[in-house]
């Protein structure tokens, strides 16, 4: 089990390998879309890893990128249609970023680096753990952005009304895109200073 835990902190895809940053930051203004996004990426990553690993010996190396892209986009379309059918509101909120999972570098990176050379079950677990490592960062960033930016968590008011009456204000900056980048920068900073010690 231990060998699968790397992506959670030591090899975290976002904080350490800088993969998959594109979609990670755009969906973190609130907790709910961030969790849905993390789940979608985990599903896509795990199952495309599984399929690529199953057919790894039959893919001609020359066209493997296109084969990988097609398999990933198959899963992404599936996830996209499911979201539109059952969570329409959230899928509107995520807009193009569900589609952009196709070009999420975590998935391509894992397919290239792991699934092409490992057996199906380890590949599946590797996909799941990388998705979870990605999700952890998303959830932490979204937690702070939603709490400080709108005073809510999962759309429920968390900061008491009384606080607003004595002059507390939501930090509007937190909802704006640049703040996501700065938060991730700070997370890398904290992580770096703890690991080095």
């Amino acid at each position: 089990m231990k060998k699968y835990l790397g992506p959670l902190s030591k090899d975290n895809p976002i904080l350490v390998q800088t993969l998959g940053v594109c979609s990670a930051l755009a969906v973190t203004a609130q907790l709910k879309p961030a969790v849905v996004m993390a789940l979608s990426v985990t599903v896509v990553c795990a199952f495309s890893n599984l399929i690529i690993s199953l057919i790894r010996n039959t893919i001609p190396p020359r066209i493997r990128i296109i084969v990988q892209l097609l398999i990933v986009s198959f899963w992404v379309v599936l996830v996209d249609l499911l979201l539109q059918a059952y969570f329409y509101e959230i899928s509107k909120l995520l807009s193009v970023f569900v589609g952009l999972i196709i070009t999420n570098c975590i998935i391509m990176g894992r397919l290239e680096a792991f699934a092409l050379s490992h057996k199906p079950w380890p590949s599946f677990m590797d996909g799941v753990m990388n998705g979870v490592g990605y999700g952890l960062v998303l959830v932490v960033v979204a937690f702070f952005r939603e709490l400080l930016g709108s005073g809510t968590l999962w759309n429920h008011q968390v900061i008491p009304k009384a606080l607003y009456q004595i002059g507390y204000l939501n930090n509007g900056l937190m909802i704006l895109p640049p703040m996501a980048l700065i938060l991730v920068g700070v997370m890398i900073w904290i992580r770096g200073s703890r690991v080095d010690r």
Partner: peptide
């Protein structure tokens, strides 16, 4: 720059600040 912030950490923060400027 503080040691743990070098590399990608500071790059994120600079991008954020540039983004604020572009806003």
């Amino acid at each position: 720059i503080p040691e743990p912030l070098r590399g990608n950490g500071i790059a994120y923060i600079i991008t954020g600040l540039m983004g604020l400027g572009f806003m």
